[in-house]
């Protein structure tokens, strides 16, 4: 995806931003949540390109969310721009620390250790009565550089904020994918020995990926906390991580945009299935995941590539 892809992506974001006032409230809030989660997924895509799966990405999501909620609660500070940055930075710092450890691991050991770390946070939060234990607590109503919208206006403002953060995140990740560090993902998956003998530390490249994924996870969590207005320990539970991994596999790692489309599809399917057949929504998700792995191993994104190839073959 080069300049043209980026232009198309930018236009899509602008279109989504412009369309907002015309959309019903429930669509606005669904898209906000979906696009907040899409950042976490984008982080997982960064790892997945190098063959790494984190079954504990909810750790950063939860840290981002709690960082926002706690800052607002303890300091009374409610400016969204600063809060989102705080969420991203808090998760990013944690990722820097954890990266020293995690970057040595591969395959299921990478997945398992990330899982353990996210469950540690869950265990701590569940037992923290001052933070509401399993119930969590509410996030103060945010302000935008002094502007304090309510209800629908707040929803719209958060929607735009999420789109803005996503657009910046997507662009930066696009740049990263075209750098040496980003392009080394497939080589690391293929053959670490060769990478080392070309003069690059595989560990440090993976560490970078862990940190990028952590920051994105934290930003996603921060936005989700603001949009939902509530945080609880389940944000760090393994099923939350599982959901993010799910969308990653669904989206595939070929395109940055796939993380956003995948997230949107996931959120839509989930709310639809939840409404229409509440008893069967997990089964729906499981079946979709299974079918994706069996028939679209490179994710929904590969459909686009396939169509494109077919188009080129015809012309």
């Amino acid at each position: 995806m080069g300049g043209r892809g980026q232009l198309a992506g930018g236009l899509m974001f602008l279109f989504a931003a412009a369309a907002a006032p015309l959309l019903p409230d429930w669509v606005v809030s669904l898209v906000t949540i979906a696009f907040a989660n899409a950042l976490v997924v984008l982080g997982l895509v960064v790892l997945w390109r190098a063959g790494l799966v984190s079954f504990g990405q909810a750790l950063y999501y939860c840290i981002g969310a709690y960082a926002v909620a706690l800052t607002a609660r303890w300091t009374g500070f409610t400016d969204v721009f600063a809060l989102v940055v705080i969420g991203g930075v808090a998760a990013g710092l944690m990722a820097v620390l954890i990266g020293f450890l995690l970057a040595r691991y591969r395959e299921i050991f990478f997945a398992m250790l990330s899982l353990a770390l996210s469950m540690i946070l869950y265990g701590v939060l569940v037992k923290s009565e001052s933070l509401g234990s399993t119930d969590g607590f509410s996030v103060a109503t945010p302000t935008f550089l002094g502007y304090a919208p309510h209800r629908d206006a707040l929803g719209l403002a958060l929607y735009w904020l999420t789109l803005g953060v996503d657009a910046i995140g997507a662009m930066l990740v696009g740049v990263y994918f075209r750098s040496v560090a980003g392009a080394l993902a497939a080589p690391i998956r293929d053959n670490e020995i060769r990478v080392e003998f070309l003069g690059v530390s595989v560990t440090s490249i993976i560490h970078i990926k862990v940190v990028i994924a952590g920051i994105l996870g934290g930003l996603g969590g921060a936005l989700a906390a603001l949009a939902i207005g509530h945080v609880d320990p389940n944000m760090s539970y393994w099923t939350t991580s599982g959901g993010f991994v799910f969308v990653t596999i669904l989206a595939g790692s070929g395109y940055v945009a796939a993380a956003f489309v995948g997230s949107l599809v996931f959120e839509a399917v989930r709310s639809f299935a939840f409404d229409v057949m509440p008893q069967l929504w997990q089964m729906t998700l499981g079946s979709v995941l299974l079918l994706t792995i069996l028939f679209l191993p490179d994710g929904l994104g590969s459909l686009v590539a396939r169509l494109k190839r077919r188009g080129e073959a015809k012309s």
Partner: peptide, 14 residues
């Protein structure tokens, strides 16, 4: 692992 995860989700509803 992901395949077994998908199976797990399905079985939860079964």
């Amino acid at each position: 692992v992901l395949v077994t995860y998908a199976t797990f989700l399905i079985l939860e509803d079964v």
